[in-house]
Amino acid sequence: MNTRTPAAPSATATAAPAPAPVSAARTLATAARVLRQLRHDPRSIALMILVPCVMLFLLRYVFDGSPRTFDAIGASLLGIFPLITMFLVTSIATLRERTSGTLERLLAMPLGKVDLIAGYALAFGLLAIVQSALATGLAVWALGLEVVGSAWLLLLVALLDALLGTALGLFVSAFAASEFQAVQFMPAVIFPQLLLCGLFTPRPAMQPVLEAISDVLPMSYAVDGMNEVLRHPDITGDFVRDTLIVAGCAVLVLALGAATLRRRTA
């Protein structure tokens, strides 16, 4: 009778690679790969870079007979447009990576989740800087948007809003199975914030339940931050609070996005 004990299966056959420590080199390599891919997608680049500028241009001349109206809502939309466009582009682009198996193959390598998410955020963040700078420059110096505060503060809030849109897009891409589904998340994630952020009516004038909901939505603080720059020549405590909340929400959502990534274990 054969009494030999069967050999234990090799641990390396089924075990996933151990997560690697966070590496700036891997993060930069991931960002460079994403930027190379986007370079071959001119429609996405046009959506990110040009659409906010075109929308602001149209808005200015829609209110051509009432420039004060443009001044009143232009700053708010300067923060909202980048958030929306970055959300759309990031969610669709990341979903393509998921459905094509690219993310799965990357996670089968000794690449940390933080490296991967940080690389995507860095790549889209660089585009967000370009987008926000162009939109802010167009609004202030070409379309005559009058603000009491510094245009650099407008740029800061616009950039944070674009980064928040990037983070939200990375996060929701985990729950979509197709590009159509990714677009469907926009009414669920963006539209309620758009209605409750104070763009159409001051938040304190809303029904109390809706005001309470708006208090926990990041777009509300994006609009509030823009309005602080619009009305005050110096940095205020409310402005600091609003920008910190928007930045904190972006970091939180990026962390949640990292949590949706799964390594292959078989």
Rank of each mutant, 00 (worst) to 15 (best):
R4M: 12
A7T: 13
T12G: 15
A16Q: 09
A20P: 00
P21Q: 09
V22W: 14
V22P: 06
A25P: 00
R26T: 13
A29Y: 11
T30R: 01
A31G: 12
Q37I: 08
M48D: 07
V54S: 12
L59M: 14
D64R: 15
G65I: 06
S66K: 11
T69I: 12
D71S: 11
A72K: 09
A72H: 09
S76A: 14
L77R: 04
V89I: 06
S91N: 06
L95W: 05
S100C: 06
T102E: 11
T102L: 14
L107D: 02
L107C: 02
A108N: 10
A108D: 09
M109S: 15
M109R: 13
L111C: 00
G112L: 03
V114W: 08
Y120S: 10
A121V: 01
L122S: 07
L126D: 05
L127V: 12
I129T: 15
S132F: 05
T136S: 06
A139H: 02
V140M: 01
A142H: 08
G144F: 00
L145Q: 01
E146T: 10
S150V: 07
L155A: 08
V157I: 14
V157E: 07
L163A: 09
L163I: 14
T166R: 04
L170G: 02
V172M: 01
A177E: 13
E179C: 10
F180E: 13
A188F: 04
I190F: 02
P192H: 15
C197G: 04
G198I: 03
G198D: 05
L199R: 05
R203A: 15
M206T: 03
M206W: 07
Q207C: 10
V209D: 06
S214D: 00
P218S: 05
A222V: 06
R231W: 10
I235A: 14
I235P: 03
R241T: 12
A250N: 02
V251W: 11
V253E: 00
L254Y: 02
T260D: 08
T260Q: 13
R264V: 13
R264E: 11
A266C: 11
